[in-house]
Design a protein around this nucleic acid. Structure first.
Lengths: 339, 339
DNA sequence: CAGCGTTATGCATACGGATGCAAATGTGAA
DNA sequence: TTCACATTTGCATCCGTATGCATAACGCTG
C-alpha cells in the first residue's frame, strides 16, 4: 500500500505530462492540436515527454469535450451476401487509413434500421455509413441537424441531406440486356431480388428498358425473394419451367445458386442450354466452376467515395454519385445460333 | 435567434430531466442504475420524464466516469478467408445481444497486431476479441492489469491471462486421417497453410499423428503459404505431380481452390481420381459444385464462448477451451478399391 | 416519544481534455 | 526607449455522468 505519488494507478494523463514539464495542462492539449499556437520549442519538449511517459490522449475525454469521436458507424443489413463482406472489409481499411474507427452495427434481419440509430447517437459517432439497408428521411434529417454525415451505399433516399454512393445499377442492367440480345438470346427470364431494394429495382428497370428499346421482352419473371444462394437455386427451378435460353439473376449470389441448380439438379448445361448472368462480381464469380459473366461494381471507388463523404466538412454539399459498372465476360453466356 | 430556455441546442442531458422534475442530477443517474437506491415512485417518474424528453444517457460521458465503455474491439487479421467473415457476422450479432458494441479493427496484412493495440486502449474498450491473428503476451499482460479481457479465437498464447477459444484442430486432423485411411487411400498429401498459425500447426499435427498411429505416412507435403483460393489452386498443381489419391488442404478455401484447379486445370476427377478434404466448413463447401467433405467448426458455440469470456467478471478465471469439430461427409472423398 | 437503523436524496467532485479569455511575453516600428 | 501588435501561456470552466459522503426522511422498537 505505498502511497508514493510517482506510481499512479490509472493511465498517464495530460496533467501528468504537464506536471513533469512544469507547464499547464492546456499546453499539453494544444501541443497535440496542429492548429493551436504553441512555441516550437515547447511542442517538441512536450511530444518527447509524452512519449517518454507513454502518454496518449484519451479519446473518450476528447469526445466528451468536442462532441465528436472520430468514430464512424457502419450499419450492415444482411451479411449473407458476400458482396457486402467485401465492402465491409474495404470500408474498415479505408476508414482506418483516414484515421477513423469503425463501430459495426449488424441489423438483425426483420429489424428496422431506424430503431437502432438513436442508440448510435449516444456514442457521438461522427458519421454513418449504411450498406445493404435503408434509412428514413426523418432520421436522416436529425443526423444532419447535428452535423453528422450519413452515407448510403447502393441505396437512395429522397432527401438531399444524405449522400448516396451507388453503382449505376440501371446502366448495368442495360449492358446485360444488350449482351444477351447481341448474342442472340430469345427467351429471357429475370430473377428478381428483394422487392424493396433499389439495387433490384434499378437493375430490373435498366434491363427492361434495354430490352424494350430493341423490341424484345421477357419470357418470365421470377421473384427470388431474397439475395441468397438457396433462393437462387429455388428460382432456377421455377425459371427452368419457362424453357429460357438466358437468365439474368439480380445479383451474383443468386446467379451462383441458380447456376448450380441448373447444372446439378436440372441437368442443364450452362451456357450451352441456358446462359446466366449476374451482378456484383463477387469473388466466387471468377472461380473456375462458375466463370460467371457479370457486372463488376467498382467497390474500391465506392468505398473511397463513401469515406470521403463521411469525412467531408460540414459545409460540403451532400450529393449522390453513381459509378459505372464494368461488364466482365466470362463463360456463362453463349452466342446463340441463327441470329 | 430566440433565446428561450425551452429549446436548447444540444441533446437532452440528465440535468434537463432533473430540472424538469425538481430533483438532483444524481438521482437521474441513479434511476438508471438498477443497483442504486431510488424510491420506486421517483424511479417511475424519472423514467417517464426521460422518455418524454427523449433523454438517453450519453455513453461517452459515462465511459469517462466509469472507465468502461461497453465496447468490445474485434481484431481481424485477414478477411480473405470467408470463414472469418462468418465469425465476424455472428460475433457482431452476439455482442449486440449482450449489450456490447463492436469496434472493428482490421489489421492490414504484414502489419503487426501489437502495434495497433495501444491505440485501442484510448477508447476504453472493455475487451478484445482477436480472430485470425495473434498477440504478444506482454500486451496481454498489460490489458489484464487494467482488467480488460482478451479472448483469442483459434489461436493460443502461452499466457494464462488470455482466454482462448478454439476448435479442436488437432482432433479434426485425426478424424480426417481416419476417414482417408478407412476409405483405403494410400498416397496422401498435406497442403499446409501459413506456418505461423496454430490452426495450421494443430491440424497438421493431428493428421500426422492419426496417420502414424496406423503406420501410414505422406507422399508429400506442400506449403501453400497463405489461406486463399489461389494459393490452393497453385498448391494443387504441385500436389498433382505427386500422383496423390487423397489431399488434405489445411482449410476450406484452399481446398476449394485446389479442387477447382484439379478439375478444371489438371483435368482430374474429384473424387474419382483424387479425394479432397478441407477444414472449417465454410458456406461454399456445401455448394453443389464442390460438395466438400470437411470438418465443421462449431462457430456458434465458439462465438458464444468468446462473448461470454469478454463479458465475464474480472474475477473469473481466463481459460482456454477447445470445442470438437464435426466431420461433414459430402462428395469429395471416394472409397478406394482393394483395401 | 426517544433512540436507532434503513433508505432516499443532495452536494461536491472526479473522469481527461478542449477552449474562450485575459495576462504575459516577445517583436518591430517610430 | 516607448507604444502597438502578434504570439505564447495560464486560468477557469465546460462537456455529461457516476459516486463517496453527509444529511434528511422514514420506519420500528421499547
Amino acid at each position: 500500500m505505498s502511497k508514493q505519488p510517482g506510481r499512479q494507478k490509472g493511465p498517464v494523463t495530460s496533467r501528468d505530462v504537464a506536471r513533469l514539464l512544469g507547464v499547464s495542462q492546456s499546453m499539453i492539449s494544444r501541443a497535440f492540436d496542429p492548429r493551436a499556437s504553441v512555441s516550437p520549442a515547447n511542442r517538441t519538449r512536450i511530444v518527447e515527454a509524452a512519449r517518454a511517459l507513454g502518454y496518449e490522449p484519451n479519446v473518450i475525454a476528447r469526445s466528451l469535450a468536442t462532441r465528436r469521436s472520430s468514430i464512424v458507424a457502419i450499419v450492415m443489413g444482411s451479411m449473407e451476401n458476400p458482396f457486402y463482406t467485401g465492402v465491409l472489409d474495404q470500408l474498415a481499411q479505408a476508414l482506418d487509413e483516414a484515421g477513423l474507427r469503425s463501430l459495426l452495427f449488424r441489423v438483425p434481419p426483420g429489424q428496422d434500421v431506424d430503431d437502432q440509430l438513436p442508440a448510435l447517437r449516444r456514442y457521438n459517432v461522427d458519421g454513418l455509413i449504411v450498406a445493404s439497408a435503408s434509412i428514413s428521411s426523418r432520421i436522416a434529417a436529425e443526423w444532419r441537424r447535428d452535423d453528422r454525415r450519413v452515407v448510403l451505399i447502393n441505396r437512395t433516399v429522397p432527401d438531399a441531406s444524405v449522400a448516396s454512393i451507388s453503382c449505376d445499377n440501371c446502366g448495368g442492367g442495360r449492358q446485360l440486356a444488350d449482351l444477351l440480345l447481341d448474342s442472340g438470346h430469345k427467351r429471357l427470364v429475370y430473377v428478381a431480388g428483394p422487392r424493396n431494394t433499389s439495387t433490384n429495382r434499378d437493375r430490373e428497370d435498366g434491363f427492361m428498358e434495354g430490352l424494350m428499346e430493341r423490341n424484345a421482352g421477357l419470357v418470365g419473371r421470377i421473384d427470388a425473394g431474397e439475395y441468397s444462394f438457396n433462393a437462387g437455386a429455388a428460382a432456377a427451378h421455377r425459371a427452368a419451367a419457362l424453357k429460357p435460353d438466358g437468365i439474368f439473376f439480380a445479383n451474383d449470389i443468386l446467379a451462383l445458386g441458380g447456376l448450380d441448380a441448373l447444372r446439378h439438379e436440372l441437368r442443364l448445361q450452362v451456357p450451352k442450354h441456358v446462359s446466366v448472368v449476374g451482378f456484383d462480381d463477387i469473388e466466387m464469380a471468377s472461380w473456375p466452376s462458375y466463370r460467371l459473366t457479370t457486372i463488376r461494381q467498382p467497390v474500391s471507388e465506392m468505398v473511397s467515395s463513401a469515406v470521403a463523404a463521411v469525412a467531408a466538412s460540414a459545409t460540403a454539399q451532400a450529393n449522390s454519385i453513381s459509378l459505372p459498372g464494368l461488364l466482365v465476360e466470362r463463360g456463362s453466356v453463349m452466342r446463340r445460333h441463327g441470329m
